[in-house]
Each structure stands twice: as C-alpha cells, then as structure tokens.
C-alpha cells in the first residue's frame, strides 16, 4: 500500500490491509489528528483498505 503522509511530505510503501484505524495504528499515527483520503474521498475509520490501495494522510492540526 502506498501511503502519502502530508505532514512529513513523504510517501511510504507498507504491506498492510485492514481497517483504516488498523493501518494508522501500524503507522503509529493517532486517528484523532488525521483525515485519511483515498481517490479524493474521505474514509471512515472502519473502511477497509487493500494492500494495492494508495492513500493520503492529512494532518488536521494547523497550529496557525
């Protein structure tokens, strides 16, 4: 799975499938502080991801 993490401006490839919340756990990211997007669609925490998916993780903390 390709994961673009906007806050770090980095793309990672991980081998993972399962619910959005499980993928975030694997990446050690608190679900409270991010939105997860696939094909420009917002995903719910219990949406299921496939290993072939490409997702974006957007930080919701602006601090400005």
């Amino acid at each position: 799975m390709k994961v673009y993490i906007e806050r770090e401006n980095k793309t990672k490839t991980i081998h993972c499938r399962g619910k959005v919340v499980d993928v975030l756990k694997k990446l050690n990211i608190n679900p409270v502080v991010v939105l997860v997007v696939r094909n420009n669609e917002l995903l719910a925490e219990d949406d299921v991801l496939k290993d072939t998916d490409s997702i974006k993780i957007l930080s919701v903390v602006s601090g400005g």
Binding site: E6, R7, V32, V33, L35, V37, L42, L58, S59, V60, V61, S62, G63, G64
Partner: peptide, 28 residues
C-alpha cells in the same frame, strides 16, 4: 479541529492541510 478539517475537505475548500512551521516550538 478534526470536524472542521473534514467539513472543509468535504466542501472542497482549497485548504493546505499544513502545520505552521513554528507550531512545534510552542508549549501549546
């Protein structure tokens, strides 16, 4: 904050989901 971010995203507001470069240095 997450609700606002989701609202802005779902309504197609042209927002950079980017943190202020100085934010990390604060007690906040």
């Amino acid at each position: 904050e997450k609700e606002v971010a989701a609202y802005a995203f779902l309504n197609g507001f042209n927002v950079q989901y980017k943190e202020c470069p100085y934010a990390g240095s604060a007690y906040r």
